[in-house]
Amino acid sequence: EETYEVDGEEQLKKVEKMLRDRNLDVEVEIHNGKFVIRAK
């Protein structure tokens, strides 16, 4: 499992696309105004 923490939606979209391109399962949560992306 990998976890990424990003600020802002633009970064979120980039990271999310990169992970989905690797066929990973992606979950996004918001913690303290930051996006936390978990990939399995």
Rank of each mutant, 00 (worst) to 15 (best):
E5H: 11
N32G: 06
R38N: 10
G8T: 15
Y4Q: 02
D25A: 10
E9D: 09
R22T: 04
K34P: 00
E1H: 11
N32Q: 00
K17V: 05
K40S: 12
V26F: 15
K13F: 03
E9S: 05
A39M: 10
H31L: 13
Y4T: 01
L12T: 02
V28E: 00
E1D: 12
N32Y: 00
V36Q: 06
E9P: 10
K17Y: 00
I30P: 03
E29T: 13
D7V: 11
K13Y: 06
A39P: 02
E2V: 11
E9G: 05
V36N: 01
V36L: 11
G8K: 05
L24R: 03
E1M: 12
E9V: 11
V28I: 13
F35Q: 14
Y4P: 03
K13L: 08
A39C: 15
L12C: 15
E2P: 04
T3L: 12
T3K: 10
E5A: 05
R38I: 13
T3M: 12
L12W: 09
D21P: 00
E27N: 06
V28Y: 07
R38C: 14
E10M: 06
E5W: 13
D25L: 13
K34I: 12
I37C: 13
E16N: 04
V28S: 01
K17H: 06
L24V: 08
K34H: 14
E16M: 15
N32L: 01
D7R: 07
D7W: 14
L24A: 04
G8P: 02
E1K: 09
V26C: 15
G8N: 15
R22I: 05
L12H: 03
G8V: 08
H31V: 15
G8R: 05
R20A: 07
K34T: 02
T3V: 15
V28P: 00
V6W: 07
V15W: 08
I30K: 07
E10Q: 08
K13W: 06
K14A: 13
R20P: 02
F35Y: 11
L19I: 03
K14L: 13
R38W: 03
E16F: 11
L12D: 03
H31A: 08
I37T: 09
L19F: 08
V26W: 15
E29V: 12
V26S: 02
R22G: 04
I30A: 09
D21L: 06
D21W: 03
Y4E: 02
T3F: 13
F35L: 15
V36I: 15
R22P: 01
K13E: 08
E5Y: 14
L24F: 12
Y4N: 02
L19W: 00
E9T: 07
K14E: 11
R20H: 07
D25M: 12
L12R: 10
E29A: 10
R22F: 09
Y4A: 02
K40N: 08
E10I: 07
K14P: 01
N23K: 06
E1S: 11
H31T: 08
K14N: 07
K17A: 10
D21S: 07
G33Y: 00
K17N: 06
E29N: 07
R38T: 14
M18L: 08
Y4S: 01
E5P: 03
V26P: 03
E29P: 00
K40L: 10
E16C: 15
T3D: 03
L12K: 07
L19V: 02
V36G: 05
E5G: 04
E29C: 15
E1F: 13
Y4G: 02
M18H: 04
D7G: 04
E29L: 10
R38D: 11
K34R: 13
M18K: 05
L24K: 05
Y4D: 03
N23M: 10
I30R: 10
E5S: 06
L12P: 00
T3Q: 10
R38K: 15
K13D: 04
V15L: 14
L24S: 02
V6E: 01
N23P: 01
N32F: 02
N23C: 15
E27R: 09
E27P: 00
K17F: 00
V6Q: 01
V15M: 11
K40C: 14
E10H: 06
E10S: 07
F35T: 15
L24I: 09
D7P: 06
R38A: 09
R38M: 11
K17R: 10
D7E: 13
V15Q: 01
Q11P: 03
K17P: 01
D7A: 07
R22M: 11
L12I: 04
E2G: 06
N32M: 02
R20S: 05
N23L: 09
E2I: 13
Y4M: 03
K13R: 12
V28K: 00
Q11L: 12
H31W: 09
K13T: 05
K34S: 11
E29D: 05
R20V: 04
T3H: 10
K17I: 07
K40R: 12
N23D: 07
E27V: 14
E9N: 06
K13S: 07
N23F: 11
E27Q: 11
Q11G: 09
V6H: 02
V28R: 01
K13G: 07
G8D: 15
L19S: 01
L24E: 02
I37F: 00
E27S: 12
H31E: 08
I37L: 01
V36F: 04
T3A: 06
E9M: 12
M18I: 09
E10F: 03
T3N: 08
E1Q: 10
N23E: 07
E1Y: 13
R22D: 03
I37A: 04
R20E: 05
M18D: 05
I37H: 03
E16K: 11
V36M: 04
K17Q: 11
M18E: 07
L19R: 00
E2R: 08
A39D: 03
R22Y: 08
Q11S: 10
G33M: 00
Y4L: 03
E5N: 06
E10Y: 06
Y4F: 10
Q11A: 12
N23I: 01
L12G: 02
D7C: 15
K34E: 10
R38H: 13
G33P: 12
E9Y: 14
V28H: 01
E1I: 13
I37D: 13
H31F: 10
A39H: 04
K14D: 07
R20Y: 04
D25F: 13
K17S: 07
L24P: 02
K40V: 12
D7H: 10
Q11E: 14
R22N: 05
K14G: 03
T3W: 15
E16T: 14
E16L: 15
K34G: 14
V6M: 05
E10T: 05
F35C: 15
N23A: 06
N23Y: 10
A39T: 12
V6N: 02
V28C: 15
V26T: 05
L19A: 01
E1A: 09
M18G: 04
G33N: 06
M18Q: 08
D7S: 09
E27L: 11
E27M: 11
V15H: 02
K13I: 09
L24M: 13
L12Y: 07
V26G: 01
E1T: 10
T3S: 09
R20F: 05
G33Q: 00
T3I: 14
K40Y: 06
K17E: 08
R20I: 05
E9R: 09
E9K: 06
G8A: 06
L12F: 08
D25Q: 14
Q11I: 07
I37G: 09
D21Y: 02
V6K: 04
V15F: 09
M18A: 08
L24G: 01
M18W: 11
V28T: 02
D25N: 11
I30T: 08
K14M: 13
E27I: 14
G33F: 00
A39R: 00
G33K: 00
E29Y: 12
F35E: 14
K40M: 09
V28F: 05
K13H: 10
D25V: 14
V6R: 03
R22Q: 07
I30L: 08
F35K: 14
K14H: 09
V28M: 03
H31Y: 09
T3P: 02
V36A: 01
E5I: 14
E2A: 06
L19H: 01
E10D: 11
I30N: 08
Q11D: 12
E16S: 07
E9Q: 07
V15A: 02
R38Y: 04
K17D: 05
M18T: 04
E16R: 06
L24Y: 11
A39I: 15
E5M: 10
E29W: 11
T3G: 12
D7I: 12
F35W: 10
R20Q: 06
